[in-house]
Design a protein around this nucleic acid. Structure first.
Lengths: 180, 180
DNA sequence: GTATGCATGTAATTAGTTACATGATTCT
DNA sequence: AGAATCATGTAACTAATTACATGCATAC
């Protein structure tokens, strides 16, 4: 799996940014759907990239605020990023607590079951709505559009499946609860 | 996120199993699509569960082979599992190196790009074919069927999207390579 | 005889998360 | 006045991965 250092290089390859701005990318941008990184991993990663000469820090851009540190990728950093990009990508990984829970769904209290599925459907519908607006406004590179489209396709598939099959599982849970 | 201990309890709640068998579940069973655990995390987890009294070891079942250790969940273990199941599940997490790479897709050599997308499509089509066979043969609880169906729905969405949009990204990469 | 599958486990390393610690600015 | 956002970073902890280490049974 690609590490946080490489993730940061990826963001910086599109333009200078601070640690804070990098994190925002992973929270809001197209990368957010398939990657993840918090402050606790970004700041140490930036420090290591700095030590390795793959990024440089820009001496304070005097925009009033003094504390902000802007980072810029170096040729060495671009090279490292490219090496990561042409490596055979590892398999996609999907971690879902909800799916683990639902694999025992028929043993759960039916109301509870129905609620957690409903909540998740709402979450996904919300994300889909946000993405649909963004997709038409924000300007993206072809790669970003592709990735964002994939996110949208997956979210729709998940929301759709949950909606279509929700009642089956709740019905099984109801039967189970009547037996017990 | 649900930890490996809980994952093991989940498997053991369906029947006694050895560490080796538990891992197989995460590699082949319906849980495999949304969870992950290797030997290096399962064995330590089993040890801790044993210390905590949430599982017991069954003294060798004399099936010829002596080394196999079967584990059985205890009432305390079932209770712990149930507590985990009724907790509000954390958000689904999707990690994909491929998507990170493709977000820079237009900057990659077009042939390489086309190949990695094509390879991934094959991988998914293979998984889909396997699941379609299993779905009709293996017998599953309602929860397992639900989860397996979700896996199938997602894989189809991903494979479908990659197939439909592959050429767009490759075309963008071709244009980019001609400019440069 | 060779590879694969069954079977267990430890040690060292790496990575990542969470909590802590601080403070300015901007919006309501 | 208070909340949210901007902004950086460290320390302690937890977890997971990888490599190592071993050995039998079965299938080809």
């Amino acid at each position: 799996m690609i590490d946080v250092k490489t993730l940061c290089l990826g963001v910086l390859s599109r333009g200078d940014a601070s640690g804070y701005e990098i994190r925002k990318e992973f929270e809001e941008g197209p990368l957010s759907h398939f990657s993840d990184a918090g402050f606790g991993s970004i700041y140490p990663a930036l420090k290591r990239l700095l030590d390795d000469g793959q990024i440089v820090m820009l001496p304070h851009n005097g925009d009033g605020r003094p504390d902000k540190k802007l980072y810029r990728i170096t040729p060495s950093g671009r090279h490292a990023l490219y090496q990561s990009l042409i490596k055979t990508p590892s398999a996609d990984k999907l971690r879902s607590d909800l799916m683990f829970i639902l694999s025992f769904g028929h043993l759960l209290p039916p109301r509870h079951l129905d609620r957690i599925i409903g909540d998740r459907i709402s979450d996904y519908r919300q994300m889909i709505a946000t993405l649909e607006v963004e997709g038409s406004t924000a300007h993206r590179t072809p790669g970003e559009r592709f990735v964002e489209g994939m996110g949208l396709a997956i979210y729709r598939a998940v929301a759709g499946y949950l909606e279509e099959h929700r009642h089956e599982l709740v019905a099984a849970a109801l039967m189970e609860s009547q037996v017990a």
